[in-house]
Design a protein around this nucleic acid. Structure first.
Length: 700
DNA sequence: CAGCGAAGG
């Protein structure tokens, strides 16, 4: 066993776990918690009545950590030590220590709520507060109380606020294990720069000229800024006197780079050469670059945010949290003492930065999460009162309930329907799982499987067009199908069917500018979904190629109907006079069809009266991305449903319908209905709503 | 016309 700091605490850890059902272990980077905790517990016999599970927020981490543990245990990976991630289960009957993604553990818990196969569950990297880990935290709190067989839960994290988690788990003990990082000197700039790309350039060049060897890692927010800085750095370094300093190798690093470009940061630099790695927050946690001695931290990050009252997402540049700033600085101290240059004053850090990043659960649409929790049938379950470490807003939960009602996953009283149960079994957003189930009824399942799979990978399909490569692409018109003018879902279907006809030819993807990895992922998703649908499928699951003429609108009519019913929560109505749309069921302004859409206007230049959309995203303006034309006759029942919508009742507030206390303002209703004011705490709001309801009831 | 932080089933 390696000589890691955590080993010295073995006795203390075992003793604490022995006496307590839940233990929080705080361990900085390099403490060895991810690899050693599971082995310690295994050695002490904790795997006798079940496996030891260790969750990770990321697939690569689950694989790489399990591989290391298998090595240390001197066993073959997949036998005594294994891992499970989507599409890949490398465990066997022999397995005692199992690494898995938090998402996989959630799926397992859907089919075995007591998780009896495990005697110990370790939630690793809990400080990252991934949506899935947050749900698991809530479930673990219930499980340690209700499970019949014995269960030990360990929550491990780097810089998490241990006190908070401890309070969440009825004041469970917190053990702190030191990390093994070298000291990192922090340098703050005295004033925030106007342009942080320029400021990064200047700082990087200063380091290059003055400081001894060691790679520089620069954190910016996105691809655009990264490309700008890479170009500026190249120009500037060329202009420096040859031989006056080290050679330089400049590497961009972000998620839209093809994997072969990403792995370049793992190959060691040539001798006498300094690397400049210009990165997004991907290098904060997901990828660890060796050899970094200097970090330049812009203090910003791009974050996706969901607004439950408008149903819109936005991707905004926001200040990082203190936790993130520490994490970034720590990247400089992995191999020897380092330096971190922060492009913001220390006052900003202390006074402006949040202590911790806003957890994902407070920034996402929760339709899928709420459906998942409903399907668990927790006995004392009131979704508005589920015990989260940090609760999402009541607006967000009500929005989720409203969406689930519109797609028939819950009934008007908020109870899960049999349809909803089937939906929860599919690893998809509710609108997509609803589409699949409807397509099964309407006999277009094979097409729907393809569309839904394509959408699951949508962002990874097209190579990220950068401003630099954009000009080239404009001269190479796409040979891809156009969705028969009916919309983007149809186009995605046609693209996949064409690929299928080439027998999944990789070169075809390249010729058509489709990311190979993305398309292979779509194929995997489609296979997985087909397997799940198999037991209830009424028609064929195989990819079918069109019997009728490819651009015949009839070809896709049934599929579009299934999409309309599936996306009942993402439906928009066109204005009478122009091509702006109003999303139905949300309080929101006009939105436009995104210019990249293949949806076609009629001879008069007008777009369809109704469309469903995959996503509402605010960039320069609010846009609908991925739209599909639907027909009025399919929309009518949804409009009727929207009119009867009673969110109060959906949230289990009453068994009596009462239209007057409807809490959301809907576009379908021409009159404005007052929304509940927002008192600070949600319990008092639930109480207030109940009192108002009772008062009204009394008046009648 | 506009634009893609990171992750997961």
């Amino acid at each position: 066993m390696a000589d890691l700091p955590i080993v010295r605490f073995e006795e203390k850890i075992i003793e604490t776990v022995e006496k307590n059902p839940v233990v929080v272990v705080i361990g900085e980077t390099g403490s060895g918690k991810s690899t050693q905790l599971s082995q310690m517990l295994y050695k002490r016999g904790y795997a006798k009545s079940g496996m030891i599970a260790v969750t990770q927020p990321r697939r690569v981490a689950a694989v790489s950590v399990s591989r290391r543990v298998a090595q240390e245990q001197n066993v073959r990976l997949g036998e005594e030590v294994g891992y499970a991630i989507r599409f890949e289960d490398r465990t066997s009957e022999k397995t005692h220590i199992k690494y898995l993604t938090d998402g996989v553990l959630l799926r397992e818990s859907l089919f075995n709520p007591e998780l009896n196969q495990y005697s110990v569950i370790i939630l690793d990297e809990a400080h990252e507060r991934s949506l899935n880990t947050d749900i698991l935290l809530g479930l673990m709190k219930r499980l340690i109380k209700w499970r019949h067989s014995n269960l030990k839960v360990l929550i491990t994290s780097a810089t998490l606020d241990g006190g908070k988690v401890s309070r969440f788990f009825s004041d469970c003990p917190v053990l702190t294990v030191p990390g093994e990082l070298f000291p990192v000197e922090i340098v703050h700039i005295s004033e925030r720069p106007k342009n942080y790309v320029e400021a990064s350039l200047k700082t990087a060049i200063d380091i290059h000229v003055r400081e001894p060897e060691g790679d520089i890692l620069i954190f910016l927010t996105g691809q655009d800024d990264i490309e700008k800085l890479v170009m500026k750095l190249e120009k500037k370094i060329q202009s420096l006197d040859e031989g006056s300093c080290l050679d330089a190798l400049i590497l961009p690093l972000h998620g839209s780079l093809p994997p072969e470009m990403q792995v370049r940061v793992f190959s060691p630099p040539p001798p006498n050469c300094r690397r400049f790695i210009v990165s997004t927050n991907i290098a904060e946690t997901s990828l660890t670059v060796d050899g970094v001695v200097y970090v330049i931290d812009s203090g910003y990050v791009k974050q996706r945010q969901y607004n439950p009252s408008t149903g819109m997402y936005s991707l905004e540049v926001v200040q990082i949290s203190k936790v993130q700033a520490k994490q970034r600085a720590g990247r400089a101290g992995r191999t020897r003492p380092g330096k971190c240059y922060r492009l913001y004053p220390s006052m900003v850090y202390h006074d402006d930065f949040l202590d911790a990043t806003v957890p994902e659960i407070q920034r996402s649409s929760l339709a899928g999460t709420v459906l998942y929790l409903k399907s668990l049938d927790l006995a004392d379950m009131d979704i508005l009162k589920f015990d989260f470490l940090d609760s999402p807003s009541i607006e967000s939960l009500e929005d989720a309930l409203k969406q689930l009602y519109l797609v028939d996953a819950i009934d008007e009283n908020g109870s899960i329907t049999s349809l909803g149960r089937k939906m929860a079994e599919l690893p998809l957003e509710p609108s997509l799982s609803r589409t699949l189930l409807e397509a099964n009824e309407l006999d277009c399942l094979s097409q729907a499987l393809t569309v839904v799979s394509m959408l699951s990978a949508e962002t990874t399909l097209l190579p990220a067009p950068s401003k630099i490569s954009e000009k080239k692409r404009k001269h190479t018109p796409s040979n891809l199908p156009d969705g028969a003018g009916l919309g983007d879902h149809i186009q995605l279907l046609q693209i996949y069917e064409q690929w299928y006809q080439t027998d999944y030819n990789i070169d075809w993807c390249k010729e058509n500018n489709l990311q190979v990895h993305g398309m292979v992922f779509v194929r995997d998703v489609r296979k997985q979904l087909s397997q799940i649908m198999q037991k209830i499928a009424k028609g064929s699951l195989d990819v079918q190629t069109s019997k009728r003429r490819r651009d015949s609108p009839q070809e896709y009519r049934i599929l579009r109907k299934a999409l309309c019913i599936g996306y009942a929560n993402q439906l928009a109505e066109r204005s009478i006079r122009h091509n702006g749309y109003r999303p139905l069921g949300f309080k929101s302004e006009l939105v436009q069809v995104h210019p990249s859409s293949v949806l076609k206007a009629d001879e008069d230049g007008m777009l369809p009266n109704y469309v469903v959309y995959h996503e509402l995203i605010v960039t320069s303006r609010p846009f609908m991305r991925n739209v599909c034309a639907v027909e009025m006759r399919w929309v009518a029942p949804i409009l009727a449903k929207l009119e009867k919508l009673n969110v109060f009742k959906l949230s289990g507030g009453s068994s009596q319908p009462d239209k007057q206390i409807q809490e959301v303002t809907l576009n379908v209703e021409k009159k404005e209905i007052a929304t509940i004011q927002s008192p600070e705490d949600r319990d008092s709001r639930i109480q207030a709503a109940r009192e108002r309801f009772l008062a009204r009831k009394g008046q009648k």
